[in-house]
Design a protein around this nucleic acid. Structure first.
Length: 323
DNA sequence: ATATTAAGCCGCCATT
DNA sequence: AAAATGGCGGCTTAAT
């Protein structure tokens, strides 16, 4: 069985530690067997477990750090003080793992640990958006994308703050076992298999990205009114700026154009409706701001890679919805 | 599938 | 002086 080794470093963020355990541990194959053997590896002495910088409790692990070498996948959760030096042995384990092709995931500030091991050099990566600048500053060889939910480059995957770890783990499940198994896992942990539109999950953006920008209120308004026909002028009027300035701000703060952003949140809404309701495709189209089922279908295929019906089927039957 | 409108995008430049 | 803004126009993209 594929072994997942989750590293419990001192000061580990409890949530980051347990998310991969919960997601991978909840993954069942079609025959009901567990898909992964999840193990938590740590030093022989107890480690501190934290949340939001607070020390919660101490924990001892059954598996030693050294034996993580033999895992198929290593998960590196964030720690409370990501700039503190990581023990040399841990860095060695990580370097050896990447060298022999073992898959390595980081969650939140776990990216700093990978950075200390030198594993991000020349790669694309992400981390918690509050720490993205620091990651880029400390690792000049790394291409940091602060707006991505998660980023994969070769066998090294990094994910953004806290909850994005769930998205990354589900993505891994989908890569390993297909969308049907991943969708079932998402249901078990009560998460969404895909949180956002975009044809590549690698460029998915969290909806709350940019909330701290001048566009924040406009994005909220867009999300609430996405079912209506909205033109660029409408958005600009709401933001009280010209169309030209609006498009510029979208590019600066979100890296995309207004209509592309609107399209992505409409697709996201359509996905939710397809996943969780039995509304007709026409109704889904209407409620997610598409003028017709044909328009929804066209964009859905372009963004998601499958038709609305096929996508829904992958959530409601055991069939694999992949094309 | 193709055509024909409308809408959106973005470089450029003057203005604030 | 530097940065943000907004209008114009040509070009691309989307809707029907």
């Amino acid at each position: 069985m594929h072994v997942i080794a989750v590293l419990a470093l001192d000061g580990v963020v409890g949530f980051d530690l347990t998310v991969p355990c919960q997601v991978f541990g909840s993954t069942l194959l079609a025959d009901g067997a567990r898909a992964y053997d999840v193990r938590v590896h740590g030093s022989s002495s107890p480690v501190k477990v934290t949340a939001a910088g607070l020390e919660l409790y101490q924990m001892s692990t059954s598996w030693r750090m050294e034996s993580a070498r033999r895992a198929g996948t290593i998960v590196v959760p964030g720690v409370a003080c990501p700039f503190d030096p990581i023990p040399r042995q841990t860095l060695e384990v990580l370097r050896a793992a990447v060298a022999n092709g073992t898959r390595v995931l980081s969650i939140c500030t776990g990216a700093f640990t990978l950075g200390q091991a030198g594993l991000l050099d020349g790669r694309r990566a992400t981390t918690h958006w509050l720490r993205a600048d620091e990651l880029a500053a400390r690792n000049p060889e790394v291409c940091v994308d602060p707006s991505a939910l998660f980023v994969g480059d070769g066998t090294v995957f990094t994910s953004a703050g806290v909850a994005a770890g769930i998205d990354l783990c589900l993505h891994i499940v989908e890569m390993d076992h297909g969308s049907a198994v991943a969708a079932e896992t998402a249901r078990r942990v009560v998460a969404s298999l895909r949180r956002d539109g975009g044809q590549a999950q690698y460029i998915d953006r969290p909806l709350y990205a940019g909330t701290d920008t001048p566009l924040g209120p406009t994005l909220g308004w867009l999300a609430e009114n996405l079912a209506d026909a909205i033109t660029l002028k409408d958005i600009a009027a709401h933001a009280s700026v010209s169309v030209r300035t609006l498009t510029r701000r979208f590019h600066r703060d979100l890296g995309t154009s207004p209509s592309q952003w609107l399209l992505s949140i409409r697709i996201r809404r359509a996905r939710e409706l397809l996943e969780t309701s039995s509304l007709s495709v026409e109704q889904v189209a209407s409620m997610s701001g598409f003028g017709s089922a044909a328009a929804l279908r066209q964009h859905f295929v372009g963004q998601v890679g499958s038709s609305p019906q096929t996508y829904r089927r992958s959530f409601t039957t055991t069939g694999d919805g992949r094309p």
